[in-house]
Amino acid sequence: MTTLTEEQTNRTWVWRLRDSLQRFFDSDIFYSFRRSPVTVVAFLTTVIFFVAAFGAPILTPYNTNDVATLDLMNAFFPPAWIEGGSSARLLGTQVSLVVGFLSVLFSVVLGVGLGLISGYVGGRTDHIIMRIADVQLSFPAVLVALLLFGFAKAILPRGVQDAVAIYVLVVAIGLSNWVQFARTVRGSTMVEKNKEYVQAARVIGRSPIAIMVHHVLPNVMGPVLVIATISLALAIITEATLSFLGVGVPPTQPSLGTLIRFGNNFLFSGEWWMTIFPGLALVILALAVNLLGDWMRDALNPKLR
């Protein structure tokens, strides 16, 4: 057979998709996923959060920039404190998720890159990178992020501070989290680099960078995915903490942390719902992502199978 008709091409494409779906549903991973109800619930919760957060402009009937529809003070009766605040809360979740994702991405790129170089090159480079990592690891991530934020605030001109606050936050949280990625990747790179396929690649004359990126990297990414999931929960909490402390997202932009900070001012006058609902959203989101990470760590660990 030389050529396929269009229908046949379509069919093979559908079959291939069906095959890979079939393989996925038959796999060990999906089996262990299905067998753990907690994980399924956690997964669904995470998905709902994502859909709600990124669909916020469509899903919410209220304009969050309009004072009249965002007056949470009077929203005492049950439907109102859910509806009126939900617009801001969904947008807030969106900001929190975006910051969380970008900062984890930042620490993955930085950590995996440095870990690869450290493990593959070894010697003095390795020594320097790992000492820096050690020193940073002895300082808690929140403190490092706070310091970086203070640093940025001191250096940047006042006018642009609010505009770039989110990126500063991403860099600050990202920089405070790269160490564990670097350590993990360094460890597995040191194991991989002595294997035959790496030596073969070296013999045929591929450059060290090509070997690191094309050969070693795909083989060390497994654990990175697990750590990334757990760091996502951590990053979301760190973002909320910094915003709550007033050094994160500017007050004009809602994130879960700024909403809680705002609500906290009214706690003593009895308006508890302004704090509790964004707080609840934050806790449920963090818990769901954490549970997913826990499950992934067990499911992807061949020793436990």
Binding site: T241, I260, L267, F268, L282, V283, A286, N290
Partner: peptide, 28 residues
């Protein structure tokens, strides 16, 4: 597990809410 997922500042706010605002037992 829930304790680990709860951020520190939220625990503080909850404690203030329960023990200072509602029960009035402890200063906030």
């Amino acid at each position: 597990l829930i304790g680990i997922s709860l951020p520190t500042f939220l625990i503080g706010i909850l404690l203030i809410m329960v023990f200072s605002v509602w029960l009035g037992w402890l200063p906030s």
